[in-house]
Structure formats: structure tokens, C-alpha cells
Nucleic acid binder design. Structure first.
Lengths: 161, 161
DNA sequence: ATTACTGCAAAGCATTTGCAAATGC
DNA sequence: GCATTTGCAAATGCTTTGCAGTAAT
């Protein structure tokens, strides 16, 4: 296996971050493990993601990559971002269901959720330790909290004996 | 001011929850404070929201209200839900920006965010107390955690002296 | 009577998808 | 050479909006 990403028959992309160089082999491994291909488009998207150090939207990347020699199409940007998320290299900040859910809160109070990824079930909880800790963090950061939200993703294990 | 919501010239909607009856006057107050009107459509949406005790999508409501004598149009459902959110009677579970944001996490680790509602700034933090507490909650609920997310909404107070 | 609200249908917008051409292996 | 990927453009699905008619004050 070629251990150096520069040998993949791709031009060197200049101005690259150390992390990108470090992380690329991980993505390569991931793709290989899925019998997926190491393509130019994937490398380009990958580099752009690691060139950034902020939060971005898929659309921002699409825009950046929509002209010039590094052109990658919208569809491919989304598809690659999904792969990188699956590989654990990228965090999707508002993921799962894109669309808003509501619930009434009168006589209910703020609470948080465990979301089961199998059944879609929501389990509610509230917890003072967490709230207090968050208050403390806010204070530290001179942040005036309006409210907070905690969401835990995972699966509900069957409790039946 | 009429203190009983049943006097608002609207038919009584049967099968109603106590909370709906309790909360309705609050919504009325809210609407009055905005010089907005108490309408049938708003009452119908309101009742449907409080008749539910789960999480729902705006679309679910629209579907429920798209036939029969309690018809309310999609647009109005969304508009009313916004009002109820503004009034603090409803919690929008995936709010703020509807669209996904990404960030790369290699050499970064999982972390959480304080989001400034004025500037859109993200401040990152990670905290073991919170993670531990969440682990504990998951155990209690027989929940197999994949990952969790904490988001705090509010405003960054200027720290300059 | 006045002005806000509703219903409708069309527009918006991020995201997804089907398919023919291109590319990696 | 064969199978996966890409680019394209159209489709999707939730949400928003403009406007003319309707209802609340």
C-alpha cells in the first residue's frame, strides 16, 4: 500500500495544512475498506475541508469549488461530505433529520433528548448537573445563555428480560 | 379582558387537555401584546399542538389539519407554530439554521458549541463533567450512546474593559 | 370600515437522485 | 475492460411568500 498520499497520481495541492496531509491516509484507508475509489474529486473536497478551520455549509464548499481548475460538482461535494462523515473525519453539526421538530413545553419545562437511531424514538431527560456545568462554562466564556440543548444519538437497547 | 378562553366566540373543542385550557390564555395574552388577532385557525392549531404529547413535525400537523372541519392551511400552520415558538409555548427541536454545518474533526476531538445569536460566532468547548453525566444518564435508560451534542444559544457579552 | 389573517399556489432552497459520460483500478 | 464515480439537470421535500379574498376588531 502506498503510504504517502502524494503518490496517488494526483498533483500536489499547494498551501495544504499539516492536518490534511496527516488525515488523508485515513480517508484512503476508509475508502479502501469500502472498496471505494480514490478519486481526484474526493481529494479536492477533502483538501478544501481541511483547509478550513471553521464551520461551513455544504453549499459554501460547492460555491468555492464551482469555478476554477478545482471544479467539483454539487452532487459530488455532498456525496464526499457524507463519506467523510461516515469515516469520522467530519462532524455534521445539524444532522440526522434535517427538518424541525416541535413539542409544546407548557407545564413541561425544558428537557433534553436521547434519540434512538433505529426506531426514531425520543427519550426525554433533564439533569441539573449538566445545566449547572453549562452555566459555569458560559460564565467562563462571558456568554449570556438563553437556553441550551443536549441531544444524545445512539440506540435503545431492548430491556425486556 | 375575558379570562376564560371558552368565551372567545369559538366553539369548544372537545377532548381537550387540561394543559391546553390552561395555556390558551397565555397565547391570547401574547397575541394581544403584539396587537395580533385571536383567530379560529390559531385556536385550532393551538389545540392540536397541545393534544399531542410527543414530538411532531410541522408537516404532521398540516396533514392532520388538511381535511375535515378543522381545516387549516399549510402556511397558517407554519405561521402559527412560529408564533407559538415566539410565545415560548412550543420548543423547536432543530431550530436556528435549518441546514447542516460541517467541520473537520481530525486532531480536534469532539467538542460542543456556544453559538452567539448576534454575530453567529461559534465558541467551542469540551467538558468531562458533562460527558460523564451523559454516560450515566444513558446507562440509566439502557441507551447505547453513539455520540452526543451540546449546543448553547445566547449572546457573547463584550469582554473589552 | 379597517387591517390583519387565511388559503392558495407558486417560489425558494438545501439536498438527493437518475443517467450517460468519464475515470479509477 | 469493467465498475464505480462524476457532472448535469431535474426532482424532492420542507418551508416561505405574494396576493386576493375573508374574518377579526
Amino acid at each position: 500500500m502506498s503510504s504517502n498520499s502524494k503518490q496517488n497520481g494526483l498533483e500536489a495541492h499547494q498551501g495544504q495544512d499539516t492536518t490534511a496531509e496527516e488525515a488523508w491516509p485515513m480517508f484512503v484507508e476508509f475508502l479502501k475498506s469500502k472498496a471505494s475509489r480514490i478519486t481526484q474529486a474526493r481529494r479536492i473536497v477533502f483538501d478544501r475541508v481541511f483547509a478550513r478551520h471553521d464551520h461551513f455549509r455544504a453549499d459554501d464548499l460547492t460555491a468555492e469549488l464551482s469555478s476554477g481548475s478545482d471544479y467539483v460538482s454539487r452532487g459530488t461535494v455532498y456525496r464526499t461530505l457524507d463519506l467523510m462523515t461516515e469515516a469520522g473525519l467530519v462532524q455534521k453539526i445539524r444532522d440526522q433529520d434535517v427538518h424541525a421538530h416541535y413539542e409544546h413545553i407548557y407545564g413541561h419545562g425544558r428537557h433534553h433528548h436521547l434519540i434512538c437511531e433505529n426506531t426514531g424514538e425520543f427519550i426525554e431527560f433533564s439533569n441539573k448537573v449538566i445545566s449547572d456545568e453549562i452555566d459555569c462554562i458560559c460564565k467562563k466564556h462571558h456568554f449570556n445563555q438563553r437556553f441550551h440543548r443536549v441531544v444524545v444519538f445512539g440506540t435503545l437497547t431492548d430491556t425486556k428480560a
